[in-house]
């Protein structure tokens, strides 16, 4: 028996919109810790890890660990039927091949339930080792989204370089080149507008912009994005979900031959 009641149902809607471009089908894992997912894109270049901690739900009942395979497109179709202010409850029974999403309007005058078929998904769970990152950049998520979108009209890849000066995003394509430098500005009044750069060692890595742009679908989840970089390791692009957890995207770099 599984019953998860999320008062801020819009969070689940935003989570689905954030990951469904990258991953088609995935197993949602439910345990005492929370509601989580780990999945790779079909080319095994990127990985998404989601955690919604049990404490973030108004009601969280999960009698035993359960894994539910879902088509993210179908799940998004159902969640789009929930209002942005609706309370969403996810219900499942042991051994059932369906999951139910219940939507309650804030005034309780409209209650809907949508039953979705589950699917069997073979997925490999990967161990993600703890890593010391050479550089950690925190910046407004909307700014990062803007940069990825702008650069993808010039080139296909982005070189992200971190130095004492700040973080530089560069691309080149048939029509020319582009460089965008963001400097630290932690003195701004509003913390959500701050850009901070923690650097232990200079880093410069190349990534496919197509994936970066896909990660920025998570922008509505958080005002800030954290980009953790180490030479020749996957970059981690993290969007925190207030008081609940996170969506983390891992992207393997492109290596010079």
């Amino acid at each position: 028996m599984l019953e998860l009641r999320l008062v801020q149902g819009s969070l689940l809607k935003k989570v689905l919109e954030a990951i469904r471009e990258l991953v088609n089908d995935a197993n949602f894992d439910c345990s005492a810790t929370g509601f989580s997912l780990q999945a790779m894109d079909s080319s095994h270049v990127a990985l998404v890890a989601l955690l919604l901690r049990s404490e973030g739900f108004e009601h969280y009942r999960c009698d035993r660990n359960i894994s539910m395979g879902m088509s993210l497109n179908n799940m998004a179709k159902m969640l789009r039927c929930a209002g942005n202010d609706d309370i969403i409850t996810v219900k499942g029974d042991d051994g059932s091949d369906t999951v139910t999403f219940m939507f309650e309007s804030p005034t309780q005058d409209k209650i809907s339930d949508f039953e979705m078929k589950l699917m069997d998904i073979d997925s490999e769970h990967l161990g993600i080792p703890e890593a010391e990152y050479h550089a950690i950049v925190r910046m407004p998520s909307a700014e990062f989204a803007r940069i990825c979108k702008d650069l993808s009209s010039i080139g296909d890849t982005v070189v992200i370089s971190v130095t004492k000066e700040g973080v530089k995003f560069s691309t080149k394509g048939d029509i020319g080149t582009a460089n965008i430098v963001c400097r630290q500005n932690s003195s701004v009044d509003k913390p959500e507008e701050a850009t901070t750069v923690e650097m232990n060692e200079p880093v410069s890595l190349t990534f496919a912009l197509r994936y970066m742009n896909s990660f920025t679908k998570a922008t509505p989840l958080s005002n800030q994005v954290t980009i953790s970089l180490s030479n020749e390791l996957p970059v981690v692009v993290e969007y925190k979900i207030a008081e609940m957890g996170y969506v983390r995207f891992y992207l393997a770099p492109k290596i010079e031959e």
Partner: peptide, 14 residues
């Protein structure tokens, strides 16, 4: 040319 690495060359199956 840049070669795209796979995520599987960094993270092992758990």
């Amino acid at each position: 040319m840049n070669r795209q690495k796979s995520i599987l060359s960094f993270f092992q199956k758990a």
